[in-house]
Design a protein around this nucleic acid. Sequence first.
DNA 1: GGAATGTATGCATAGCTATGCAATGACGAC
DNA 2: GTCGTCATTGCATAGCTATGCATACATTCC
Lengths: 334, 334
Amino acid sequence: MTKSRNRYPTSSDVARLAGVSQSAVSRTFTRDASISTALREKVLTAARELGYRPNALPGIMQGQRSRMIAVVVGGMYNPFYARVLDTLTDELQARGEQVLLSRVESDHALDEAIDQITRYRVDAVVSALAVTTEETARKLSASRIPVVAFNSTLTAPWVSAINSDNAAAGRQAADLLLARGARRFGFIHGPLSSPAEQERFDGFARRLVACGNPAPAEARGDYDYGGGQAAIRELWRAAIPPDAIFCANDLMALGAIDTLRHELSVSVPRSVRIIGYDNIDSCDWLGYQLTSFDQDVNTMVEGAISLIFDREGLGEKSVTVTVSPKLVERSSTR
Amino acid sequence: MTKSRNRYPTSSDVARLAGVSQSAVSRTFTRDASISTALREKVLTAARELGYRPNALPGIMQGQRSRMIAVVVGGMYNPFYARVLDTLTDELQARGEQVLLSRVESDHALDEAIDQITRYRVDAVVSALAVTTEETARKLSASRIPVVAFNSTLTAPWVSAINSDNAAAGRQAADLLLARGARRFGFIHGPLSSPAEQERFDGFARRLVACGNPAPAEARGDYDYGGGQAAIRELWRAAIPPDAIFCANDLMALGAIDTLRHELSVSVPRSVRIIGYDNIDSCDWLGYQLTSFDQDVNTMVEGAISLIFDREGLGEKSVTVTVSPKLVERSSTR
DNA sequence: GGAATGTATGCATAGCTATGCAATGACGAC
DNA sequence: GTCGTCATTGCATAGCTATGCATACATTCC
């Protein structure tokens, strides 16, 4: 009664109540263990009465895999990350793994989060946040557990990456807008361009320039709807605003579309064509029909998982997997 | 080399390398432990070299709190759940707790998920899914750990609930629509009305009838945008369609608005007024301006957390906390 | 009947850290 | 010099389950 508060019952508690040995209890809950039906029933009855659940921790301490995977995300206000987390969790649970979730403000806080997480002996870490600084990469590497990060440019021993082909996406966006007759271009960045985003921009700008067009006007938003609004207002302060805009993500593109239509009375797509990135659900809503790039979350998640579970052959080697984002054209560019 | 694959280094490994006792390593990583600076430095150097992190599992086995809280969600396609998870994770991490995430199809799978989760000795469970069947409540109760479920009608020993005042919200929705001059009403349900949703509907319908109006027409969608579309088409097959609709959540309301405007050429709010539920970010977008009920996620999360951490005084008692959803009127009802 | 095979059960232990306890040494007071 | 006080360090152990090993019993076959 003194410290029994909130105590999980142990296999010995069950054994005592059932009048059997602790081994018998263990065997009852171990598949393919040799035990008679009579004994098993006695154990199950006692277990039910006490609310007993097997304890995974001793096994982990003996050296078995913990079957916990840490997943690090940077906030779910963006439906894209919500979908990544959703898919990842589903896929891991289907394999009998548990997900230890860690939310982190930016990749600078990543290594501190890892310190907490590794106390629980997770088998691996999947980060929806890109690893962008050498410092972080090195610290992750030091923990000597497999880390897979999305959209990272940096890798290190133990630290692998799943990347979209961002430059190719940028070029495709340029080609599409050119084909639709656009002449003056804009790009809306996030607050601090990640390397992945920078590649996207470079691919976009270079292709435009290579085809004899001016470099795109640039503005920054903070990755959400309001940021898209602010950025589009900024672009519209120019003497001659763009007639085609590529946004670093969909939320900003949606903010841009609404502000153009309802605040600046500009028609989309007639006067301005817009492309987003991520292909979140809202892109397909009747009011928007936003052209976007689908990062193919399923393939990326599958890649991340195989990178974790195929470690046997990989050791501490670092691997980079690249997937091609798929352009989904809708009426915002027609 | 044989089974050392992926092995975390132990405090003894560090001790051996540093030429000190295992206790010294432990003390180095324990705050306020008595240890000389010289020894601590030696230990830290060795620890850094091996990538050592303290192991939380033995302590848990000794009876300390695990500082892991399981969070159960039903999928994050709905931004409302994403926000709940986001807030909950933030708040728990701020208290030094870890989040063990479990995704579950429906509350029928809840007890099975609990079986997996409790193997890891979590201190408590927070479920964004409502507990709706006696069966589930009983099974949760049997595990004897604190469970807090959102929007549950059922409770049991150890199983508490954080509820919105759904009936009140329903009545408020009715009052607002009546005040705005609506005369014919509709309600869009989820696929199988949860008890919480049923209360909402009952509050809405009763108030309407009490004020001398006909009962609302009903349709079902599956809680997402497409479901809202299907439901609104169904309602529009009637000879005289409604001029005011209350939806069980925002995603369906948005699908309904878009379908009315772009497919059925009906003006919102001039011809039809619409109210949603949850007050997700999209409600505030310029293209929608959807009137909705804010469930005040912060307060609900705060309530859930205090219900967990104030257990000392509560024991296995079950508690129900009710919060009032706040009506946020926007132009979809003007 | 006796040997061989198989099944069922219990005993004892590894695995890792925090911590109580004891031992050691330093230092100042008398 | 002797003693008390204090800081530092090491030793030994609890906590829980899976599992190898040994034992006991049942079954089968000749």
